[in-house]
Nucleic acid binder design. Structure first.
Lengths: 222, 222
DNA sequence: CTTGGCTTTAATGTATACTTATATTCTTTG
DNA sequence: CAAAGAATATAAGTATACATTAAAGCCAAG
């Protein structure tokens, strides 16, 4: 990253994904430039890049805020994410290489301990590698990019599901179904298994909306 | 569009979609600022926004070019487009409202004449409205945005298929299958019909690669 | 006391000046 | 004559100054 604007963009992204900057928070150009010791120009450029991807919203003459999602929008994104992830799984079932499949099975085995001991932190790390291997096996970098883009926009509303004790074990079982289907080389089954995993049988929708209302309440109490 | 950078961004987008700016073409900040009578700042900001969406590529200190696609990337995008469009069709089959369905049927009827007389220009216009109505019926603005984003990036390589005489009639028949499935409220059938339409039974892949090599050759002869 | 309008202020948007890095060209040396 | 290196030029990246607009605060009038 040679340009200051890219550095700043990365830092803002990180702060949003970590929840340090929350939806609705104002992103002031001057504040950014002071915090990161650059002039307003690269700070502003960073904001505009993020606005182009939808992570922040800019209204002319009114500054930028971290994008807030309505329940409808969040559901739409989750629906789309399920579509993309399940397609990636279907592709992976057809295209994954032996060594990638071995790695996938290994990660799944490695995550078993974390799942059974409800160790969310370790499990989340494994989960990231698990899905990453599927994107790689799918041999479609574009769909992987869209998935990452969508996940980053949902992050604030969608993160916490793996912090629920019951979800970790359920997730591991669902992962197992995906692995099985990919191992068989069955794209339809992999697709169905992944869709079920992302939506967790529909419960994730309810979680999402519940989380949104909860977080909105906690904002009011600030 | 209150900001000059938004105006410039729109103009560049239009020039790219119309083929006036072609993949690989350099986008010079100074040239832009002179052509559109603005300073370098908004010109540069326009470029950065487009770079964030992937339509142009910026390499630090080396300026920006309209993104070129390798065959692999183009195939990946088409694959993803098929996934998104077919999902939108499935959703529309479940959610479309009566008046939207009426409009869809009307557009399909209207396009029949254009299809049979091989009037590509009229048909392409109808085609746009047809797909737009499906996005609307799908009640998922996010997936519609991703589709539009993907189409804009594929535009240069993917446009011309409806200028082939045989494709127009085939497209109309495929549209008919989609309409039928949506009318029945059958999401699986709508999904399959739309996937088949986007890929036209696999021929579009071949077309895409052929078009790419052809256009690359014509660039060399400039 | 409240409301409407004006004034001031602060932040966005734009222009331009300045810095830095890269590429090209010219010169020098082998 | 060729190749390598230095110098210059050009364009990207950054900083800052200026313009413009919206928002907030204040004053006056009803």
């Amino acid at each position: 990253m040679a340009r200051a604007s890219d550095t700043v963009r990365g830092l803002i992204e990180k702060e949003i994904s970590r929840g340090k900057l929350r939806p609705g928070d104002l992103i002031d150009e001057k504040m950014l430039s002071e915090r990161f010791q650059v002039s307003r120009t690269p700070a502003r450029e960073a904001i505009m890049q993020l606005a182009a991807t939808g992570l922040v919203q800019m209204r002319p003459r009114h500054g930028a805020v971290v994008s807030e999602l309505s329940a409808d929008e969040a559901v739409a994104m989750l629906e789309t994410l399920a579509c993309l992830e399940s397609e990636a799984a279907a592709l992976a079932a057809q295209r994954i290489r032996q060594e990638e499949l071995d790695a996938l099975i290994a990660v799944h085995a490695e995550s078993e301990a974390a799942a059974h001991s409800h160790d969310s932190k370790s499990y989340i790390e494994c989960n990231g590698r698990f899905h990453g291997l599927i994107y790689k096996g799918a041999r479609n970098t574009y769909i992987a990019d869209l998935i990452r883009q969508t996940r980053s926009r949902l992050a604030y509303y969608h993160t916490s599901s793996l912090y629920q004790r019951s979800r970790v074990e359920r997730s591991w079982v669902e992962h197992g179904n995906v692995v099985k289907a990919i191992e068989k080389g069955d794209p339809e089954e992999a697709q169905a298994a992944m869709r079920d995993h992302i939506l967790s049988g529909g419960r994730v929708y309810a979680d999402l909306v519940a989380t949104m209302t909860h977080k909105k309440e906690s904002e009011n109490t600030d």
